[in-house]
């Protein structure tokens, strides 16, 4: 598949879509966590939680943005950039849920990102 060189305007659009789609994907998991029923009672209560459907719709939006990005950039670049989601999650889980950002979490996240880059590079060959 050949891709045309990108104009400055296209690059700005791509960066904005990339940042917002990874942010949306991360917030989607935050809402799914909110939809998760507390201990006790039926777990299937999540099916009546509006947060479950909000999170689901946000995942679909993020997936659609990903399909758009794949038309503009090669797979080997889009896949690792999707790892921005983990950085957003670290941020939101600290801000919205008060979870601690530990050195070990950051280390694990960095290792995962390196792994995803390798997977993508290998597949792009």
């Amino acid at each position: 598949m050949t891709m045309n060189p990108l104009s400055t305007k296209e690059i700005i659009i791509i960066v904005v879509i990339l940042l917002s789609s990874t942010c949306i994907s991360s917030l989607a998991s935050y809402f799914l966590k909110k939809a998760s029923p507390a201990d006790g009672g039926s777990k299937l209560k999540l099916l009546i939680s509006p947060f479950f459907y909000l999170g689901g719709v946000m995942y679909v939006v993020a997936a659609a943005a990903n399909i758009y990005l794949l038309q503009k950039l090669p797979y080997a670049i889009v896949l690792p950039l999707g790892s921005l989601t983990y950085i957003w999650t670290m941020f939101f889980s600290n801000r919205l849920l008060g979870e601690k950002i530990t050195g070990r979490k950051i280390l694990g996240m960095c290792i995962i990102i390196v792994g995803v880059i390798l997977v993508a590079v290998g597949k792009g060959k």
Partner: peptide, 18 residues
């Protein structure tokens, strides 16, 4: 998605989401 939602209820988002 349902399994993930139940799972996220057990533990920290910053540990589970990655």
């Amino acid at each position: 998605a349902v399994v993930m939602t139940i799972g996220l209820g057990y533990g920290e988002l910053s540990v589970l989401q990655p």
